[in-house]
Design a protein around this nucleic acid. Structure first.
Length: 357
DNA sequence: CTCCAGCAGA
DNA sequence: TCTGCTGGAG
């Protein structure tokens, strides 16, 4: 009887045949496990793969990372999103060099104290890199267990969390926690999908309570989504011609909050696209005296909790004090300034069509 | 187009 | 509890 084989063992058997071959699974040194786990926070495996390879080429170990600059780190990270993760990697690398003699801590509590590592990532690193018996509980695993054990409790509640944790601890195969955690994640990503789980291919079908009761599509119980506001923004492409050389004005964003530390074309929130009004907004926000010329391009984008439609206008620069957040940059050097997706798109268009300004 | 998935910090 | 991004699916 298959059903007397422990759950953990069956998942491991499935993993041995079906687990994914991923770059960070070849060599499980703590540095590689750490970088991959942080990249995988809120980000899909397929997206992470090329970033992980580039990162390892550029920063092969903790020391090389700790000795690099914020700009280097953001440049390699550019496009991955959630930029605080990149800032935290650099901070943590420096802490490890300074306070841990360059060696990654092994126990859960020390890991959790490092910037960017919470309950999930700490347990993932401890189990994968050091084979500590820690269940790593992420969204995949919550979904899998809530179905296998038919946990009909809102995912937001602490009761749900306690139930899942107890189940995860009880089913953890001691001595193989690292592989087991990864096996469950692959299982959640490949079989026990959020929408339309592949129950016909599932090796655990016969002992999934949700499947037996036909409620697998209703679990886990998630709250209803909150509506997402839509904002309008205007960005200024401000070109300054000095003979043959064209420079454009960039602004470095605050070190906190959205797109922290990245560069952008100065932008303001708007509810109008009147030239005069726009120029006034740039004057009051940035003390820049500008004159609007023409619409360059419009880009739509979604962030985590709002959407924007951003229109980029070409402006001519009259006067105004250039404070230290601002910098005149050669068009050819734009790629050296890390940017979020929207601004990179505009920068690329600008380099391609410098005449349409 | 719109919808959706996915942890950490404050 | 709220904020942080992007890519891929539909």
């Amino acid at each position: 009887m298959d059903s007397i084989i422990p759950l953990g063992l069956r998942i491991m058997q499935w993993y041995e045949r079906n687990g994914r071959n991923l770059p960070w699974r070849k060599d499980k040194n703590p540095y590689r496990v750490w970088i991959s786990e942080v990249m995988l926070q809120q980000t899909r495996v397929e997206t992470v793969i090329p970033y992980f390879k580039r990162w390892m080429k550029r920063f092969p170990n903790i020391k090389s990372l700790a000795e690099s600059t914020e700009n280097d780190v953001l440049s390699v990270w550019e496009g991955l999103g959630y930029y605080s993760r990149a800032h935290n990697l650099l901070k943590t690398a420096r802490i490890i060099m300074r306070e841990f003699g360059g060696k990654f801590p092994r126990n859960l509590e020390s890991l959790k104290d490092l910037p960017g590592l919470g309950a999930y990532s700490s347990a993932a690193i401890a189990s994968i890199a050091y084979n500590e018996n820690q269940p790593a509980i992420d969204g995949n695993i919550r979904r899998v267990y809530s179905r296998l054990f038919d946990i009909r409790i809102s995912m937001k509640t602490s009761l749900f969390e306690r139930r899942i944790r107890r189940i995860a601890e009880q089913n953890l195969p001691h001595g193989r926690a690292g592989d087991f955690n990864q096996a469950l994640m692959d299982f959640g990503a490949m079989i026990c999908l959020p929408k339309q789980p592949k129950c016909t291919e599932c090796p655990l079908e016969d002992r999934c309570l949700a499947f037996r009761r036909g409620v697998q599509n209703l679990l886990p119980m998630v709250g209803q989504a909150t509506p997402i506001p839509h904002e309008q923004q205007a960005a200024a492409i401000i070109i300054h011609k000095r003979g043959k050389l064209s420079k454009v004005l960039l602004r470095k964003r605050s070190s906190k909050g959205l797109l922290a530390g990245l560069w952008e074309f100065p932008s303001v929130y708007v509810n109008t696209n009147q030239g005069q009004e726009l120029a006034r907004r740039f004057l009051s926000t940035f003390k820049l005296k500008l004159r609007k010329k023409s619409l360059f391009t419009t880009v739509k984008h979604s962030y985590s909790h709002f959407r924007v439609t951003l229109s980029a206008y070409a402006f001519t620069y009259n006067s105004g004090k250039i404070t230290k957040d601002f910098k005149w940059v050669d068009l050819g050097d734009l790629s050296e300034y890390p940017m979020g997706k929207v601004n990179r798109l505009i920068a690329d268009q600008l380099v391609l069509n410098p005449n349409e300004r």
